[in-house]
């Protein structure tokens, strides 16, 4: 079932995005709306490296993660001066800045024309042009990311993050350097988003700035709010739900001249109803 495999790959990629954003928003309580920027940085870094050099996909992925981490460190340093709503607005701004860079640095990113013809990864001489093989790679990475996130949130580091979310000042009184903690988790989350970006770029084989607009950040935020904040399985569930729901609505059988609009309406309606009756998300443990 190539269609189901395709959907599974998308769920996997958005699952990674959800897991990584949940570390920042769910566990640490920082409302970051700039995740699509890091996702895009990873995607663009991989796309440019793979189309202009003969690098292996995994080297390109790691380089993308590295570049994204450095930028996330700089952005995180600025953002650490904000609190609460201002943090959200500040992060909002960074998404727009990075999007503008994708759009306007045309000698590097080819601007709105996008970059087509991105290669698929190769492992031990096996080229992953077959979607099923690519799905296995995505699932393997998703699993790795999941266990990494679980390790983090169950560690003492993760407890400190949750304490920051509940009462940052109290933690500072105990001598924790909370800025340092927030910065680390922010950079880590960005790095994981870059991994998802790399996978996306080599899966779709085409990237353009429109895939990394602010709306995409809000979509990822919706995944974790719907799935449940501060719950790793919730992130996966949210990704599954938000990717599959619009696809499911393709099969409802609306008449073709209103099908597209009805899909949007029903999709929105289901989300509103869900939030009304389950404000903590499907399996959430924390409310914004």
């Amino acid at each position: 079932m190539p269609y189901l495999i395709h959907l599974a790959i998308l769920v996997g990629i958005y699952g990674i995005l959800g897991l990584s954003l949940n570390l920042v928003v769910g566990y640490t309580g920082l409302l970051s709306v700039t995740h699509a920027a890091f996702y895009g940085l990873g995607a663009y870094a991989t796309a440019i490296l793979l189309t202009s050099t003969g690098l292996n996909f995994f080297v390109a992925l790691l380089l993308g993660v590295l570049i994204t981490s450095v930028l996330a460190l700089l952005i995180g340093l600025v953002l650490s001066r904000f609190h609460g709503d201002y943090y959200a607005l500040g992060s909002f701004g960074f998404n727009i800045i990075i999007y503008s860079v994708f759009l306007n640095w045309q000698s590097l990113t080819r601007g709105p024309l996008g970059i087509p013809g991105i290669r698929r990864p190769e492992i031990f001489g096996l080229n992953l042009t077959d979607n099923f093989h690519f799905l296995l790679l995505v699932l393997a990475i998703l699993l790795l990311v999941y266990f990494l996130c679980r390790f983090i949130v169950n560690s003492s580091f993760g407890r400190a993050l949750r304490a920051i979310r509940e009462d940052e000042q109290a933690l500072q009184v105990f001598g924790y350097r909370t800025t340092f903690y927030k910065l680390i988790i922010f950079v880590l989350s960005a790095a994981l988003a870059a991994v998802a970006g790399s996978l996306f770029a080599s899966y779709i084989t085409f990237v353009d700035p429109s895939s990394f607009v602010l709306f995409e950040s809000i979509f990822i935020l919706a995944i974790i709010i719907l799935g449940g904040l501060a719950n790793l399985r919730g992130s996966l569930l949210g990704a599954l739900f938000l990717i599959l729901l619009p696809e499911l609505l393709r099969f409802v059988g609306f008449p073709s001249d209103i099908a597209a609009q009805m899909r949007q309406v029903v999709y929105g309606l289901i989300l509103v109803i869900l939030m009304l009756y389950r404000p903590q998300g499907l399996v959430g443990e924390y409310k914004l």
């Binding site: 190539p2 269609y3 395709h6 959907l7 998308l10 996008g114 779709i204 085409f206 990237v207 353009d208 429109s210 895939s211 696809e247 393709r250």
Partner: peptide
């Protein structure tokens, strides 16, 4: 957009 078009094509 590329993502939605690819989903539609696969379907």
């Amino acid at each position: 957009g590329p993502k939605d078009a690819l989903s539609a094509a696969q379907k």
